[in-house]
C-alpha cells in the first residue's frame, strides 16, 4: 500500500514540476528545495515559511518531500540538476553521504545552501553556505535568562534532555551547562532524557518530582517545548505551580508553549526560527547577482520570548505550525 501511495505522490510531483516548467519567464529565479518531510509541526512551518518567502520575492520554489529518506533527497537533487534550476536548498536528513551528489551539483554550477542542519564532508566547498541555528547558543540564552531571573538565590534545576546522542540535545545541554558553571548558585540536580516527546517527558517528570521532592525544584529546563508541556502537566497534577513557584524555560517556540505562557504556566522559550529559507534566499540573491561569497555558517537568531508577548505570538503562530 505504501509503495502505491508513493507512486501516486511521485506522479503528482511530476505533474506539478512539469506544470511549473511551462509558464516560466527567463529572469525568474528557480530554486529547488529538498525537504526532509513533515515529521513535526516545526518542519511543516519551515516549508510553509519557505513558500511564503519565495512568493514575496517572486522566486519559483519547487519543494520535494523526501519522507525521511536520504535516497529520496539525492534523487530530488539529481532531478533539480537535470531541470537546470538556479540554486538548490537542502535540509539534510543525515550528516554524511552527500559528497557525490553535491559534486554533481557543483559541476553543473548550481549553488547548494544547507538549511537548519549541517553536514560532515571533507570538502566544505561542496556547498555554498549553511543557514542554521546555533543550538549551543540556544542553551546559553535559556541559562542566561534563568541566571538573571533567580539572581543570587540558590536554585536547583531539573534538565529534560532530548534523545540521547542527538546532536541538538548535546549542543543545547552544552550551552546551558556552560552558563550554569559560571553561576555557583545554579545547580542541575537531575538531568534525564524525555526523548523530545510530551508523554515520555511527563512520565520522567513524575518520577523526578518524587525523587527530588517538589519544593526542592526551583526551575525546569527542557531541550524542547513539547517536553516542557508534558512536564508542566506532571507538575500541575502533583499540585505544584509551574510558571509561578517553579520557573520554566525551554527551546523551539511552538504555538502550545505560547499558550501555556499566556496561561501563566510557563515562563520563557527560546525560538528556533522556522524562517531558514529567508536568509538563504538573501545570500543566494547576493551571490548570483555579483558573486558575493557568504559566510559558511549563517547563524539564525535565537530570540527569547516571555509571557508578556505570549498571547500575540500564539495568535500569530497558531496557523503556521
Amino acid at each position: 500500500m505504501k509503495s502505491l501511495l508513493k507512486l501516486g505522490v511521485a506522479a503528482l510531483a511530476c505533474a506539478v514540476i512539469a506544470g511549473c516548467g511551462q509558464g516560466q519567464d527567463s529572469d525568474q529565479l528557480v530554486v529547488g528545495f529538498s525537504q526532509i518531510g513533515s515529521e513535526s509541526g516545526w518542519r511543516a512551518a519551515e516549508t510553509r515559511v519557505a513558500r511564503e518567502q519565495a512568493e514575496a520575492r517572486g522566486i519559483d520554489l519547487r519543494v520535494s518531500d523526501a519522507q525521511q529518506r536520504q535516497e529520496n533527497q539525492i534523487r530530488a537533487i539529481r532531478t533539480f540538476i537535470a531541470q537546470g534550476v538556479d540554486a538548490i536548498l537542502l535540509a539534510p536528513v543525515v550528516e554524511t553521504g552527500w559528497d557525490a551528489v553535491l559534486a554533481e551539483a557543483r559541476e553543473a554550477n548550481i549553488p547548494v545552501v544547507l538549511l537548519d542542519r549541517r553536514i560532515e564532508t571533507a570538502d566544505e566547498d561542496l556547498y555554498l553556505a549553511a543557514v542554521a541555528s546555533d543550538a549551543v547558543e540556544e542553551g546559553r540564552v535559556a541559562a542566561r535568562w534563568l541566571a538573571e531571573e533567580v539572581g543570587d538565590r540558590q536554585c536547583g534545576v531539573i534538565e529534560l534532555q532530548g534523545t540521547v546522542g542527538a546532536s541538538v540535545a548535546n549542543d543545547r545541554r552544552e550551552g546551558f551547562a556552560e552558563i550554569v558553571a559560571g553561576n555557583p548558585n545554579l545547580t542541575i540536580v537531575r538531568s534525564q532524557s524525555g526523548d523530545f516527546t510530551r508523554s515520555r517527558a511527563k512520565e520522567v517528570m513524575e518520577s523526578l518530582i518524587r525523587s527530588v521532592g517538589g519544593p526542592n525544584i526551583c526551575a525546569v529546563y527542557a531541550h524542547n517545548d513539547d517536553m516542557m508541556i508534558g512536564a508542566i502537566q506532571a507538575m500541575t497534577e502533583a499540585g505544584l505551580n509551574p510558571g509561578e513557584d517553579i520557573l520554566t524555560v525551554s527551546i523551539d517556540g511552538v504555538p502550545d508553549i505560547f499558550r501555556a505562557m499566556a496561561e501563566g504556566q510557563a515562563n520563557a522559550t527560546v525560538e528556533l526560527t522556522p524562517n531558514m529559507a529567508g536568509p538563504a534566499f538573501d545570500l543566494l540573491e547576493a551571490y548570483l547577482d555579483d558573486g558575493t561569497a557568504p559566510e559558511k555558517w549563517v547563524r539564525t537568531d535565537s530570540p527569547l520570548y516571555l509571557a508578556d508577548t505570549a498571547e500575540a505570538e500564539y495568535a500569530q503562530r497558531r496557523d503556521r505550525y
Partner: peptide, 15 residues
C-alpha cells in the same frame, strides 16, 4: 496515551 498528554502526537505515540 492521548488522554494523558491531552493531545495526539502521531509521530511519537506508541513509538
Amino acid at each position: 496515551v492521548a488522554g494523558d498528554i491531552r493531545g495526539a502526537d502521531a509521530n511519537n505515540a506508541g513509538l
